[in-house]
Design a protein around this nucleic acid. Structure first.
Length: 435
RNA sequence: GCGACUAUAGUUCAACGGUUAGAACAUCGGUUUGUGGUACCGAGGAUCUGGGUUCGAUUCCCAGUAGUCGCCCCA
C-alpha cells in the first residue's frame, strides 16, 4: 500500500457528522444579516503580503510569525489571508464602494494563521466578518453589538457568552496614553517578564492584557486608558453604553481590553465564553476609522467584528440541531431488475411533481431483508416498495416505518397519484418544523 | 514558538519483552431474495512513521508526525 497523505496540521476536514451544526449556524447567520439589511461580499483568499503588513501592523504576532507567506512564480510575496477586515477594505477601495458612501457588508470563509493547533484554534479556521463603512457614530457600533447579541439568542447561546467593552480613544489620545503608560511601566520594569519587555518597545498596550499574576497586580495601579480619552471619544463611549442599556444588553467595561491588531480606535468589544478553555473569545471587533486611509483610500469611518465559527460549532448544543437535521421522507426499495428501472423513473417523477420531497433510493440491490434494514436505518418516514407484484398492478406499496403496530394500517397500496397526495399532506404537516 | 500528557480495528477501550494482539459498538452477510427495528450465527477490519536496545519490540529508548491541555496568540 502506498503511504497515506495526511492533511496539513491544523487544517481539518469537516465531516458529515459536523456539517449540520455548520449549516445551522450559517443559515441563522444569513437570516440575521438579511434582517439588518447587510450585503454579502466575496473576495480572494490570497493577497499581497504588504496589505496585511500595512493594516494589521508590522510588529504584531500575526504578521511577525503567523502568516502563510510565499512567493508566487513572478516572485511576488503573497499571503493566505489571516483575517478579513484588511481584505474587505482593499476590495472596498479598489471597487469604489467607500467614497462618500455607506456600506454594511459581511463575508464568510476560511482564514489562515500558523499557530499551534488546539481545541478551538486551528491553522485554517473560519470566520464570519461584518464591516460597516461611512458611519462614525455610536449608533452603528450599538447596532453591531445588538446584532451579535441577537445571534446568540438565535443559537441558544445567550447564557454562554458575556460582553466586554472598552474604548481606545483616538489615535492621538492613544499615543499620549502610550507614553504615560510606558513611563509607568519603565518605573516597574523589574517586574516585567521577557514577553512584556519586548512589548514595551513594540506594543505596550498589550502588556495590560498579560496573564502573568505579578504583572497583573502591577497593572492594577497603572494609569488607565479611560482616564486619558479625548472628550469626543468619551462621549461616543457614553452614548454607546446608553444605547446598550436601552435594549438591556449587559456588558462589562474592561479597561484592559486592547486588540491584537493595530488598526483599532474608540470602541472595542469582545464576546467571551468560559466554556472553551483558553480559547474564550467567540466574537470580537471594534472601530477602525484610520484604516481605509492607511490603505490608500479616502478617510472613511469604519467599524466591524468577526466571529470564529469553529468555536460556535463547539458551543452549539446537539439538542438545538434536532429540528434541523433532515431525514428523508421516503425510502425506495426496488426488488428485481424490472423494478430497478421503473423505480428510478418513479422517484424522478416524484421529484418533478414535488421538488421539496426527499427520497432516498436504495441502490445496490440485495435481499428484501437487507433492503428493509437499510430502509430502516435511513430514518425515513415511509418505505416505497416496488417489485413485480406492484408493477403488474401499477401500484406502489407504502409502508409506514415509524407507525408502531396499533390499529392503523401499517401498509397500503397506492397509485402514483395517490402517492403524490400522500406526500403533499406530509409536506404541509412538516412545513412548520422545517425551515 | 515553548512546556506537559497521549497515539492499538471505522469508533471507544483491553493486553503482553516471546504461539494466532482481545472486546464492545459500528459495518457487511446469514437465520427460505416480499417485509425492518429485538434475538441468534458468521465475516472483514488495528499496534502512527523512522531509527536504536534486544536472540526477539506493538510493549523499553530516541526522533519525526498527529491529537489533547496549558503558555503565547486570537476569532
Amino acid at each position: 500500500m502506498a503511504d497515506k497523505i495526511q492533511s496539513i496540521r491544523g487544517m481539518n476536514d469537516i465531516l458529515p457528522d459536523e456539517t449540520p451544526a455548520w449549516q445551522f449556524i450559517e443559515s441563522r447567520l444569513r437570516q440575521l444579516l438579511k434582517s439588518y439589511n447587510y450585503d454579502e461580499i466575496r473576495f480572494p483568499i490570497v493577497e499581497k503580503t504588504a496589505l496585511f503588513k500595512r493594516s494589521i501592523g508590522e510588529v504584531t504576532d500575526i504578521v511577525e510569525k503567523e502568516m502563510y507567506t510565499f512567493e508566487d512564480r513572478n516572485g511576488d510575496s503573497l499571503t493566505l489571508r489571516p483575517e478579513g477586515t484588511a481584505v474587505c477594505v482593499r476590495a472596498g477601495i479598489q471597487n469604489g464602494l467607500l467614497v462618500n458612501q455607506q456600506q454594511r457588508l459581511w463575508y464568510i470563509g476560511p482564514m489562515f494563521r500558523h499557530e499551534r493547533p488546539q481545541k478551538g484554534r486551528y491553522r485554517q479556521f473560519h470566520q464570519l466578518g461584518v464591516e460597516v463603512f461611512g458611519l462614525s457614530g455610536p449608533d452603528i457600533d450599538a447596532e453591531l453589538i445588538m446584532m451579535s447579541a441577537r445571534f446568540w439568542k438565535m443559537l441558544g447561546l445567550q447564557d454562554s457568552v458575556t460582553l466586554q467593552l472598552n474604548s481606545l480613544g483616538t489615535a492621538q489620545a492613544r499615543e499620549q496614553y502610550r507614553s504615560v503608560l510606558v513611563d509607568y511601566l519603565q518605573q516597574h520594569s523589574e517586574l516585567l517578564d521577557e514577553d512584556s519587555q519586548r512589548r514595551l518597545q513594540t506594543n505596550p498596550l498589550r502588556i495590560l492584557d498579560s496573564k502573568n499574576p505579578a504583572i497583573q497586580e502591577m497593572i492594577e495601579q497603572a494609569p488607565r486608558l479611560m482616564e486619558h480619552l479625548d472628550d469626543e471619544s468619551r462621549q461616543h463611549f457614553a452614548d454607546l453604553c446608553a444605547y446598550l442599556d436601552s435594549v438591556g444588553i449587559a456588558y462589562e467595561i474592561n479597561t484592559r481590553l486592547v486588540r491584537g491588531l493595530d488598526y483599532y480606535n474608540r470602541t472595542v468589544f469582545e464576546w467571551v465564553t468560559d466554556k472553551l478553555g483558553a480559547q474564550g473569545t467567540v466574537c470580537a471587533g471594534g472601530r477602525y476609522d484610520g484604516l481605509v486611509k492607511q490603505l490608500g483610500g479616502r478617510e472613511t469611518p469604519a467599524v466591524g467584528f468577526a466571529m470564529g465559527l469553529e468555536r460556535l460549532v463547539l458551543l452549539v448544543q446537539q439538542e438545538q440541531l434536532k429540528n434541523y437535521i433532515k431525514q428523508p421522507h421516503a425510502v425506495l426499495l426496488m426488488m428485481g431488475e424490472r423494478a430497478q428501472a421503473a423505480g428510478l423513473a418513479l422517484s424522478e417523477q416524484l421529484r418533478d411533481a414535488l421538488p421539496k420531497v426527499r427520497i432516498f433510493n436504495i441502490c445496490g440491490g440485495g435481499s428484501f431483508k437487507s433492503q428493509m434494514k437499510r430502509a430502516d436505518k435511513s430514518q425515513a418516514e415511509i418505505a416505497l416498495i416496488l417489485g413485480d407484484d406492484e408493477l403488474d398492478k401499477q401500484l406502489i406499496t407504502v409502508k409506514y416505518l415509524r407507525q408502531k403496530a396499533d390499529n392503523k394500517p401499517q401498509q397500503e397500496s397506492l397509485s402514483q397519484d395517490q402517492l403524490i397526495e400522500l406526500f403533499k399532506t406530509m409536506l404541509t404537516k412538516n412545513a412548520l418544523t422545517e425551515q
